[in-house]
Design a binder for these strands. Structure first.
Lengths: 213, 213
DNA sequence: GCATTTCCGGTACAACGTACGGGAAAGAGG
DNA sequence: CCTCTTTCCCGTACGTTGTACCGGAAATGC
């Protein structure tokens, strides 16, 4: 049947190794040599399975999409969208390189298509038109990625603290000084923000302007 | 007064050259050698003005912030925030590399502090607490960057079209097929979406849940 | 003139993605 | 069995990147 030398590795194995490296040491550590070494192959052997590094990262993004649990629509479209956002967030927290990779990339791969389908299914009761639904999904995805990226960024740099402190002391930024002094009694939860975003974006009843989004 | 050999160039000149290159050929074209060549200097001379390339990009981001017109609060906080978002969008459209650079970066530089102050001033009438105001600003900034990135991405790749078309023909993605077939009568405008986002995020009256964001 | 300070920029190195091509390992046909 | 064809493996090598190093050049202060 299949002629020629049989492959010693698999595409799946390459992608999984790349994801493991990214999870452990960040996306910058994902180099062809490193991945190849991780699976006991030569660097150039990877090009048997992947046309170039960019496609490898595409495949990584699509691969983690496979592990995100599917949300089947319940009819409560707000709840369904929130569940989708939560699942996305969980995936990004498990793979901290994901928000960054997603930011510089477009929809690719089967799982991404499934993700779109899932969002559209959840949005079905809203009666928004097709392109608006897609726009809403894109905006929500971007929101989650942005939120998680901020979450993962951790505390500000010493340098940033110095910059802000200097700004406050200068007296030229009274609102900033006030905001920092006041602080926040309660840290806003992801769910609360996401729900506001969902309602604000997708509810045509609550916001029936001349522009229906 | 000042001892030693006087500088042949200036930091400002370096940053402006880098911005010009990024505007013309994208952020990837911003290399130390290229920038140096652009201002008639040796590659290593740049390190007299900038500690490393990452700081140069930081400086580029901060520099374009200087050209964004300031919005002075009018008391109409929704309108003020919308004006800020519009100004940000205009800046990003003028410098298409900005959304990408912003995504992988944190607040740095004087103009960024001024931007925060401006947003906080606009949010003053809302009576949100300090950290919530900052959160709202971060979310809005992320939204604008994400929106403009999508705007600038242009039409989908031939490969993406093939993938989606295949998915539609397979019959496994009915909602996606329907959404694409239906299309959109009206393309949602930036202003409409931004206003929904602003109201949804920051209006404590319209959304007075147990979580005040 | 001399010492000191500062900036200039050529050279060089490590790491990257990957083009190239010869060698190795399999099935197919004789 | 041998040989041809196909496929994969991967060492070598090239161009590009950021930048460490350092000798030389140019200014001031004594």
């Amino acid at each position: 049947m299949t002629r020629g030398r049989p492959p010693a590795h698999t595409l799946e194995r390459v992608i999984e190794a790349a994801i493991a490296v990214a999870d452990a040491d960040g996306l910058a550590a994902v180099t062809m040599r490193r991945i190849a070494g991780e699976i006991g192959a030569g660097a150039m052997s990877l090009y048997t399975y992947v046309p170039d590094k960019d496609r490898l990262v595409d495949a990584m993004v699509d691969r983690v999409g496979a592990d995100v649990p599917a949300i089947t629509p319940t009819g409560d479209w707000q709840g369904d969208l929130l569940a989708i956002c939560r699942a996305q967030r969980a995936s990004m927290l498990a793979h901290p390189w994901l928000p960054g990779a997603l930011a510089a990339r477009r929809i690719t791969g089967r799982h991404m298509v499934a993700y779109l389908e899932q969002g559209l299914a959840a949005l079905a009761p809203t009666r928004l038109d097709g392109s608006t639904k897609l726009e809403v999904i894109a905006l929500l995805t971007g929101f989650v990625a942005n939120f998680v990226a901020n979450e993962l960024a951790g505390p500000p740099t010493e340098e940033q603290v110095a910059l802000i402190g200097e700004a406050v002391l200068s007296g030229d930024y009274p609102h900033l000084a006030a905001a920092l002094a006041e602080g926040g009694s309660r840290v806003p939860t992801f769910d609360a923000i996401a729900l506001r975003m969902i309602r604000g974006l997708a509810d045509p009843v609550l916001w029936p302007g001349p522009d229906i989004l």
